[in-house]
Design a protein around this nucleic acid. Structure first.
Lengths: 336, 336
DNA sequence: TTGTATGCGTTATCAC
DNA sequence: GTGATAACGCATACAA
């Protein structure tokens, strides 16, 4: 079914059909009716490839995600979901591309095959090859997270340094003097994962500012890893009475280790961090945390990307979120 | 950058370049070299839209997911991840389309705009409009889950009836006489969500077969809902000593309610169910459950779809998974 | 072994 | 207000 067939059945030319569809020139009411009826009857819809070829744009956004092998966190999932939702709201389709692992080809196809009008990139490293690649390709893109050298890229991020700093101050205000920072996995941090580094910087500076004793550890991104990690931490640093973290996936394990050590939260031990809202609320006890507005951020990513596609010359825009810390029930005064 | 530009710079015709790329006819080694060098230099890649238009296929699969508003379960996430991974492995791209909610347009675009060569559908209802729509459209599709009338559709599913039956037998063997079934949310079940109905059927028949007393309840798909639900259940049916469930998202709440009621798992109360492996393992105590092979199923969905695209006349194939129940630590003998 | 010509389905320019 | 026609970039049947 193509536009020519519609034209034939309606007894008009192809261009008239096209103009009825686009509304870019006036068509007599009679023909309009007739054409729309035929379109309806045959359930005709323009061929996307032909349209893309002619118009030079695909009405499709690329979304580059971490490979599946590495399980997506709740927060990442929130980004994906909200990007898809926002794109659908703007009548845009979303092409998913796993990066990393052995998926170079998928990424290359998206970037260089003109399959999309723009790209949204997640899980940004401080030095990120994909960002360089995209920069050089000229394809509009927006990142969720930002690389070290980010002046010329459009991005949206969470201000991990500030948030972790606030968490430390909160614990310090409650009287805690020995505080631990539970980071994401060692591999991720070693690979230059931005939030890991920025959160650590925030932790270190706050610890110094308040004259506290701080210890930081990397921790695998799952419950079992969290359990091991905290067990070791408690053994090596029994003086620690509270922790701050950006590793939501490790928390169930963290809590099990605390329980096993006979420590109650928040009576004997306080936990604060950065996490998705659902996560923080479903945790027991509910987690005192900065609630990352994942839904909003996906939305913004799509908006920014549309803006950039529409007007490539616009100077870069950055959005840095520092949501307030929601006081729940996982932090309390230090017990003597 | 197009194929003509490459041809000009290499001093050959466009078709020669095209044939070098496709390998569909022999090209002298000298020209081949020259052309490949130019391609390399300019980092040329064929325009996907032009190729799709010419070839009549897009090398893209559609993946229809539930809307983001309704949070994806761990299992659904596993499907998405594995589909994307498998598709990437076959050099196929994946176009994501949220369905339900107010995303009709997105679904219609995918189905009727020839944006994809085939579609993978998730979260199937017994009577599913999207399946009917796809059936009538002639576009090849595979479902994860299956509708009531599924003889002519290609699908992959988990045998919820059998698995829940096994769970009931397992509890019965341990001496439990009063068993509850915790279903997915009432809305989902009312909407004809397949697993909800089939699992319930399996539960009922097993209860009857063993001469037990069974009670079944619907339960919201989140921790808070699970907590409420179990609290009510324990109040109304204090004789119940074990439950089986397909609602993994409710389990943290279920457990909290049990704890609050002073019931220990598995000493005082047994839990068995169907869940993703990670989920079951991370649970405390680790969950005795049939581990849904989500990764494998996404893979199969892509393979089946490729098969169907390649050979539309092949009779439909169905794959029904009934993974064994992994004995972990959430079930034990009834206490007297 | 290579080149020329055609058409995929659209949109948009030009002519009427 | 409407119709004919030329691209868009590619793959391939047909010529040489």
């Amino acid at each position: 079914m193509n536009i020519g067939e519609i034209a034939k059945r309606a007894g008009v030319s192809r261009s008239t059909v096209s103009y009825v569809l686009s509304g870019k020139r006036t068509v007599s009411e009679e023909l309009r009716r007739r054409i729309l009826t035929v379109i309806e009857e045959l359930d005709y819809r323009p061929n996307a490839a032909a349209r893309a070829l002619k118009e030079g744009r695909t009405r499709t956004l690329g979304l580059v995600i971490p490979p599946a092998s590495q399980r997506l966190t709740d927060m990442q999932l929130g980004f994906v979901a909200s990007v898809v939702e926002a794109a659908a709201g703007a009548d845009l389709d979303v092409l998913l591309s796993p990066s990393g692992g052995d998926h170079e080809r998928s990424f290359e196809r998206v970037v260089t095959g003109r399959r999309v009008d723009g790209v949204i990139l997640m899980e940004i490293r401080l030095e990120d090859d994909r960002v360089s690649r995209l920069r050089q390709s000229g394809l509009p893109f927006v990142t969720i997270g930002h690389p070290a050298d980010a002046a010329d890229v459009w991005w949206i991020d969470v201000d991990y340094a500030t948030l972790i700093t606030r968490c430390v101050h909160h614990l310090a205000d409650l009287g805690h003097r020995h505080i631990a920072f539970v980071n994401r996995s060692a591999e991720l941090v070693a690979a230059g994962y931005g939030p890991g580094h920025r959160a650590l910087a925030g932790f270190t500076s706050a610890i110094t500012e308040r004259g506290l004793a701080g210890v930081d550890v990397c921790c695998p991104d799952d419950a079992a890893g969290g359990e091991d990690c905290l067990e070791r931490l408690l053994a090596d640093h029994p003086e620690v009475t509270g922790l701050v973290t950006i590793n939501e996936a490790a928390l169930p394990g963290v809590q099990r280790a605390l329980e096993r050590a006979g420590l109650r939260v928040p009576r004997d031990f306080s936990i604060a961090g950065v996490a998705g809202r659902h996560w923080a609320e479903d945790f027991r006890p509910p987690l005192t945390a900065a609630d990352v507005p994942a839904m909003e951020m996906g939305d913004e990513a799509v908006r920014l990307l549309q803006e950039r596609i529409a007007n490539p010359a616009t100077p870069p825009r950055h959005i840095l979120h520092a949501p307030p810390i929601s006081l729940r029930s996982s932090t309390g005064p230090r017990r003597h």
